[in-house]
Nucleic acid binder design. Structure first.
Lengths: 345, 345
DNA sequence: TTGTACGCGTTATCAA
DNA sequence: TTGATAACGCGTACAA
């Protein structure tokens, strides 16, 4: 026996309220929206019936007229990385205070899913989209077409440069240089780098900061010590194991990881190899993940103001939605070095 | 000078595509929706123009007709607690695979905000709402009225009983009894309980599990050792400090916390009092937060299948939306005891 | 196979 | 101050 398909929940409409009172829908509409030109008496009566019948305006119908949905799409690679929930919290807070709702989507680092959800969000006529992208090749055509379509977009954290979309991030390059210099100042010379995809802002900028520090201190950079993999624990684990496969004399004595999850994965690999942190290999990360202060040894890292990134991203997309002349810009929020024990302090 | 207000992004409509080809909108509509009765030749031409003009169907208009938005509201108390992102991931995965999008809202444990966002979601005509509630009094009128309105709702994790709404959770009571018994079996007799609000399922059930264990083993329950506070670190910190204010002879030798964040806060309080865990006071939690294995000492706790809770919650709300006869039910997913060192193992 | 008329719930516009 | 009408973009139901 087939199940009974549900008729959708019946909502009270303006027409029904109007019929109840014997007035026109326009009068009810005006009363509800506090327009000036409606008699106080009738308005009072209308409002009574409105509450009695439990009328709620149908925003879908409004959106159809105004082509505005007060809705923002948020595209995130991995919601369970502690950085992102904090960002989402910031986004939600600002969006909510401007009467926007957010559609949250998780792409699991898949650019294919990213494209699919963006199409879905577009079909739902979101007013704008906030994206932390998972694109890892050089084919920007998808975003170029979107930009041309006029859809307001803002990248945050994982941005693509030069496609005409604002980016809300942090001072990745200088912070990465700083934390690398911290290792150098401690006397480390042979330093490896566990990179993420370099097509993305954070992949590129953090790597450049690392290189800059090495160059600045006249340290040679061995290409074999630069391993590129994903932005997560697994990526860090595999990348580190590649370094550990090198002959002992060629191994790095310290490692800079593109972010904390990668550092955690690398720490696992180091421990599994029977080596000590930081005595045998020192390591630093980037993010200040909630676990960074708890792992053993506590991880030296760069604190990113995730909540602020979220707030800034939300306010930027809202301005981009609402104002024609809002400029495309890159915003760098300021990070803070957090020295713990993994670097040999 | 005032800023230029943006005219909303112009989207291509069926009518425009039709005009371009000199056919009717219906023909285009049929072609796009793969209806059988349209000539292969014209269909081919239409699809070309559709892609060339970048047409995307307007789901807002569709929703107005069908009164179905393929949208689910998700109401969460605190997105930065590691349990919730994992749940959200599960929700998003299932929702997405059924072509639903999710509106994420964070209430910061405020029932006032909870009411406000639910009204907003209703106005946006979501098909249903998933809620982990922050209600902490006995006034269920808000939800009773919502149920009467026919809006599909499903609670998860933090549920309210007896209002006719399904609840997706875990075997809170038996798991709480089990972990309490684990302490009892280790020889602890004077055991305290750090509770959350008992109006909510997890507050009530976990407390009852604790009581059941004590009763079962003929252990006296000292009311002074049961402290109620919030579900977060701060709540645990304050609650534990209340216990520590007791004369040494009356202090508990072990403490059961309603969840891991509360346990973390309590551990801070214990350490600040100069006491050792578990030597002076043992402690156990509930959740298996991402930090549980990393804190010092590692926290004995109950593992909740957060991702599964999310998947189940999403599939339940979708069924509730789609089928008239979907029953109201309480689903208990199975947890697992995770023994670590905080309980004196 | 293709086209026309109407309605979903609301608001802008113009008329009364 | 009020009301009638059209329109937003689409699909159903019917007619051609």
């Amino acid at each position: 026996m087939p199940r009974e398909i549900k008729k959708s929940t019946k909502n009270v409409t303006l027409k029904e309220v109007a019929a109840e009172l014997g007035v026109s829908t326009m009068t009810v509409s005006r009363a509800i929206n506090n327009r000036p030109n409606v008699d106080e008496q009738t308005k009072k009566k209308i409002m009574e019936v409105v509450t009695r019948m439990g009328y709620t305006p149908n925003l879908v119908a409004k959106s159809l007229i105004s082509s505005k949905t007060y809705t923002i799409g948020v595209v995130i690679p991995e919601i369970s990385h502690s950085f992102f929930p904090e960002v989402v919290k910031g986004i939600e807070e600002v969006a909510n205070s401007h009467n926007y709702q957010i559609f949250l989507t998780n792409t699991s680092d898949s650019f294919e899913k990213e494209k699919a959800v963006i199409e879905a969000l577009r079909a739902k006529r979101v007013d704008g989209i906030l994206i932390s992208t998972s694109l890892t090749n050089n084919d920007y055509s998808f975003y170029k077409r979107l930009v041309e379509s006029g859809l307001p977009m803002v990248f945050f954290d994982r941005c693509i440069s030069d496609v005409g979309i604002s980016c809300i991030g942090v001072n990745d390059k200088s912070a990465s240089r700083q934390i690398t210099e911290h290792l150098i100042n401690k006397g480390y010379k042979r330093i490896g780098y566990l990179s993420g995809p370099k097509q993305l802002s954070i992949g590129k900028d953090r790597f450049e900061g690392f290189m800059e520090a090495m160059l600045l201190h006249n340290l040679p950079v061995d290409e074999n010590l630069i391993i590129e993999n994903g932005f997560n624990e697994k990526g860090g684990y595999h990348a580190m194991n590649k370094l550990l496969e090198l002959p002992v004399s060629q191994r790095p004595r310290a490692v800079v990881a593109v972010n904390d999850p990668v550092a955690f994965g690398a720490m696992d690999a180091i421990r599994e190899a029977g080596l000590r942190i930081p005595e045998d290999i020192a390591i630093v990360g980037f993010t200040n993940d909630i676990r960074a202060s708890l792992v053993n040894p506590p991880l030296t890292t760069v604190h990113q103001p995730a909540f602020e990134v979220g707030k800034k991203a939300a306010s930027k997309i809202i301005k981009t939605i609402e104002y024609e002349d809002e400029p495309v810009e890159n915003v760098e929020l300021i990070t803070k070095l957090v020295i713990r024990q993994s670097c040999g302090s």
